[in-house]
Design a binder for these strands. Structure first.
Length: 463
RNA sequence: GGUCCCAUCGUCUAGUGGACUAGGACGUCGGCCUCUCACGCCGAAAACACGAGUUCGAACCUCGUUGGGACCA
């Protein structure tokens, strides 16, 4: 039975890279009818915050990445780690280290001075006598020679020389366990079969394998996925803008767009670009994940988002849009308008936030004119067009699109202007913008009264 | 600095020794559609980091160089 896990530290928001790692774990386990575990690595009491744990859980749920087991919290498992450390101690596979932080710091400095490798010098490894009263850390006895080799699912065979590894602390003198130790104990105890994680952990892997072996646990399979980079090709970080997953929700992205984008970042299935979650589960193959880091491309994400906006049900987009309008301080006078607005804006907006900006004018008859729009289209010259339009519009017998079309055609004929020159002033009068949905759509969504009000206001604004 | 990893259009990638005149997608540019903006449709420019070797044949295998990244310090 395949079992994978996502094990974030709640020391920050769930970011794009973490979300992708979670996704790969999720997809791999689901593809193999396996189990996906969520574990919160909150041993760093100082930096871990419940707020971040909530952010992570919420982010995963939003994306539709659901876990089968957990969330487990490492904070609640401290006894387990201590017991394992003591077991290694008793088996002679670990030892007490009495060196103080000050001593270690001095050794480190000396090593740097001499140009030597900075590693623990193993002073306490073979102590004849223990020092019962002194505080101690527990260190793992790393073999002094030999090699550790593992077969990474994505990278292939990777080998490390043991000489490069020093005797790492597994339990600090204050009794708290260290990262490399807790992961191994947990992954082993939870029966994780495949560890899929960022390739920033490659260097930790040989130490962890040695610990598995010392503990007598089966070593799992490893798959190290490349990190996501920003435009400058360094690891994605705050400098690159929005990295927190939920920020994308607030910016008006749909979860399926993000899911699709993240999955396709570093992985491909022939020429296919669009994948539903179910399709991803069916087609995802960890062996085909690329080895080189991928750069996060906002444009492509936006394209996917617009695709999903276009293909979503109007009612769903309307509900989401409502929240964005409310957030923008728009008073929604008439909810009925929402659906036709969505129909018209679906093809135009790349994000829901954008859509809200485009939709705003529908809800306020006191139109705000964009400066350039007013300057160009609400002029003395166009005043007559607006007046003609208003006259005609008020007296329209059949106020439907056909009638409105005829009205505009007549104005075009009478004035001898081009259609665009007639329509644009009307558009600006109604929307305040030079770009909007089709003029007849706008007219009919607004309704008769609103249109009249807005045209009058525009005429008055021209002095 | 040490260790490890990586390298196909600007970006995500297809490619697993002959099907490669290197395919798709985003973006860019041009055109069509058109009341504006989008959407849609059509088209274009755009890449195998470099150098050796293996082979009848290399984007693909090997080695080196260069460049980039991650971790540790």
């Amino acid at each position: 039975m395949v079992k994978t896990r996502f094990a974030p530290s709640p020391t920050g928001h769930l970011h794009i890279g973490g979300a992708r790692t979670a996704l790969f774990n999720y997809l791999f386990s689901k593809h193999n009818n396996g189990i996906f575990v969520l574990r919160i690595e909150d041993t760093d009491l100082e930096r871990s915050k419940d707020e971040y744990t909530q952010d992570i859980l919420e982010g995963l749920k939003w994306l539709g990445i659901f876990w089968d087991e957990g969330p487990f919290f490492q904070r609640e498992r401290m006894d387990l780690y201590r017991a394992h450390a003591i077991r290694l101690l008793e088996n002679g596979l670990a030892y007490r280290c009495y060196c103080t932080p000050e001593e270690l710091e001095e050794k480190r400095k000396a090593a740097i001075k001499e140009g030597k490798k900075v590693a623990y010098d193993r002073t306490c490894r073979d102590l004849k006598e223990q020092k019962p009263k002194k505080p101690y850390a527990i260190r793992f006895k790393t073999p002094k020679s030999g090699q550790v080799t593992f077969n990474d699912i994505i990278r292939g065979q990777i080998t490390f020389n043991c000489e490069e590894l020093d005797d790492l602390i597994i339990l600090r003198s204050d009794g708290t366990p260290t990262y490399n130790f807790t992961v191994v104990v947990d992954d082993a105890l939870m029966g994780i079969t495949h560890i899929i994680r960022g390739d920033d952990h490659i260097n930790n892997t040989p130490r962890q394998i040695l610990i598995y072996e010392a503990l007598g646990y089966k070593v799992p399979e490893f798959a190290h996925v490349p990190l996501i980079h920003g435009k400058d090709k360094t690891r994605l970080s705050k400098r690159h803008g929005a990295t927190s997953l939920l920020e994308y929700r607030n910016e008006g992205f749909l979860p399926e767009a993000l899911l699709n984008y993240l999955a396709r970042l570093g992985w491909a299935y022939g020429d296919q670009e669009i994948f539903s979650k179910e399709e991803l589960i069916e087609k995802f193959d960890i062996n085909h994940v690329g080895k080189s880091p991928a750069i996060f491309d906002m444009d492509k994400l936006k394209w996917l988002n617009s695709h999903y906006i276009k293909t979503s049900q109007d009612s769903r987009i309307a509900d989401l849009l409502e929240a964005f309008l409310l957030k923008a301080g728009v008073k929604i006078d008439n909810r009925e308008k929402l659906i036709p607005i969505v129909k018209n804006l679906k093809d135009r907006a790349k994000t829901l936030k954008e859509m809200a900006q485009m939709a705003e004018f529908f809800f306020n008859d006191d139109v705000h004119y964009e400066e350039k729009a007013k300057e160009k289209y609400l002029t003395y010259e166009t005043k007559k067009i607006l007046e003609d339009f208003l006259d005609g519009f008020v007296s329209l017998k059949e106020n439907d699109e056909a009638g409105q079309k005829l009205l505009i055609e007549n104005i075009v004929k009478e004035t001898g202007k081009k259609t665009v020159d007639v329509v644009q002033p009307i558009r600006v009068a109604l929307s305040g913008k030079t770009a909007s949905p089709g003029i007849f759509e706008v007219i009919n969504i607004l309704g008769k009264k609103s249109v009249e009000k807005r045209i009058k206001k525009a005429i008055e604004s021209i002095c």
